[in-house]
């Protein structure tokens, strides 16, 4: 019983981080119809911001989180202007953008790799290796902090989307781009801003994972499939769905890791992605099978 509870706790603690990693991806797809395969490498970019801030100034990754988010948002805007604005009207847009984001991911991987080498990195603030003990259970502090901060950020995002006027415009664009435009929403501006928010979330997620996982540029391939599985299971474009899917898959992966073997725990995500795409391409909360 303790074992089950222990695995459950570890799964939930990571679930929050996965949720934050996936939510930016989901937001960008919802608004822009861009499947951003470069999201994971941008997360690693955010992790490098946290890593260098930690190494050079000893800054806490949690404190430099806004910095990472800002730097990545700026990158996002630049990226959008350079790459994605051009073809937004073409018919095969979302298929084209998969290949485009894929090549952006390679460019970023190569750039990060040649700047910082492919050595495994990790930031190690005091709490990263700490744990809270309750009876027989141990709860790794770093993961709890990361999970809590992730959930706080996602809550803020949800409130912003739900109650602010701009969030209203974002949701309208997600639902129906043409109708939103007819109602006077500047959909291009909404697009840029939500892309910037999405990539900014990648930056925030990056500073959190910098002390939860070890990372190097080449690792993003694995995360592409992991994050896509969350987003697809949740229903592309549904941030709530992504959060639910993140917790579900993270817990399942934790159990697979504990009972079958740690090499197979990532397999959970890949198999889930494969199966969901084929069985229920619209995911849990997605309504429109447009992607299929």
């Amino acid at each position: 019983m303790t074992d089950i509870l222990q695995v459950l706790i570890l799964g939930i603690a990571l679930g929050g981080v996965y949720a934050l990693m996936g939510s930016g991806l989901s937001l960008v797809f919802g608004v822009m119809r861009i499947v951003n395969l470069a999201h994971p490498i941008l997360i690693i970019g955010g992790a490098y911001v946290a890593y260098w801030a930690f190494r050079l100034w000893g800054a806490d990754p949690l404190a430099t989180l806004p910095l990472a988010a800002l730097i990545l948002s700026a990158t996002g805007i630049l990226l959008y202007k350079l790459v994605f604005e051009k073809d937004a009207k073409s018919a095969k847009y979302s298929e084209m953008t998969v290949l485009l984001t894929f090549s952006v991911a390679m460019i970023a991987e190569g750039a990060l790799g040649s700047a910082f080498t492919n050595t495994q990195r990790v930031t190690s603030p005091d709490y990263a290796t700490d744990a809270i003990f309750i009876g027989d259970l141990f709860i790794p502090t770093g993961q709890v902090y990361a999970g809590a901060v992730s959930l706080a950020i996602i809550a803020a995002l949800a409130l912003f989307l739900k109650f602010s006027r701009f969030g209203y415009a974002i949701r309208a664009t997600t639902q129906n781009r043409e109708a939103a435009e007819l109602m006077g929403v500047n959909v291009n501006f909404v697009g840029v801003v939500s892309f910037a928010i999405g990539v900014g979330l990648a930056g925030a997620a990056g500073s959190l994972i910098s002390f939860v996982f070890s990372f190097f540029p080449g690792k993003h391939w694995e995360w592409i499939a992991v994050l896509m599985s969350l987003v697809v299971l949740g229903g592309m474009g549904s941030v709530l769905g992504t959060v639910v899917a993140a917790f579900a898959l993270s817990v399942i992966a934790a159990f697979v890791g504990a009972w079958i073997g740690s090499t197979w725990s990532t397999m959970t995500f890949f198999l889930a992605l494969f199966v969901i795409l084929l069985v229920r391409p619209q995911g849990l909360f997605g309504e429109r099978p447009e992607l299929a």
């Binding site: 979302s94 896509m228 992607l291």
Partner: peptide, 13 residues
């Protein structure tokens, strides 16, 4: 069964 981006992603998986 799936096409477009879904197919690309499934091939990556």
């Amino acid at each position: 069964r799936v096409r477009g981006p879904s197919f690309i992603i499934s091939s990556l998986a």
